[in-house]
Computed example of a mutant assay.
Amino acid sequence: MGIIPLCFKAGEDADTLGLTGHERYNIDLPSNINEIRPGQDVTVSTDTGKSFTCTVRFDTEVELAYFNHGGILPYVIRQLTTQK
């Protein structure tokens, strides 16, 4: 999947944070994917020196499982190959 859904905090958006869309972003996620929780706050920093907090929009454990497996399709394939 490679996409981490994030939500700005209330009252913040790209304009208020001065983001142009040309930045490179670093998302401070736990190194162990099992430590990510639905609705968790994370720090996002840019290559221009800006830093802000966002909420990770994995809303369920199933969404986290999909992310952990690289997306829905790899998850389903792994489930099918492990069934007997």
Score class of each variant (00 low, 15 high):
D13V: 05
I77T: 15
M1L: 04
N32L: 05
I36R: 03
I36D: 04
G18P: 02
D28L: 07
P38I: 00
T48R: 12
H69E: 15
I36P: 04
T81P: 09
G39A: 01
P30Y: 06
P5L: 00
F8L: 00
V42K: 06
R78I: 01
E23T: 07
R57G: 06
C7W: 09
G11K: 03
G71R: 11
L64R: 10
K9Y: 13
Q40H: 01
D13F: 09
Q79W: 03
G70M: 10
K50H: 07
A65E: 13
I72G: 07
F8M: 00
F58W: 09
H69Q: 14
N26L: 04
D15A: 08
T16F: 12
L6V: 04
S45V: 00
I72H: 09
G21Y: 05
G11P: 09
F67W: 01
I3K: 15
L64H: 04
V42N: 09
G39M: 00
P5R: 07
N68T: 14
L73V: 08
C7I: 09
A14K: 14
I4S: 08
V44M: 05
R78F: 03
V56M: 08
A65T: 07
E12K: 07
E23G: 12
L19K: 08
M1E: 14
Y25G: 11
Y25H: 07
Y25L: 13
I72Y: 14
T82K: 15
I77Y: 14
K50N: 10
R78D: 11
L73Y: 14
G21Q: 09
E23L: 10
I36G: 07
S45T: 00
D47C: 04
D13L: 05
Q83F: 05
E12F: 11
E63Q: 09
S31G: 04
C7N: 12
T55I: 15
M1C: 12
F67H: 02
C54Q: 04
G71K: 08
P5C: 06
F52S: 13
R24G: 03
F67V: 01
T46F: 01
T53M: 15
D47G: 00
A10C: 13
N34Y: 12
G18D: 07
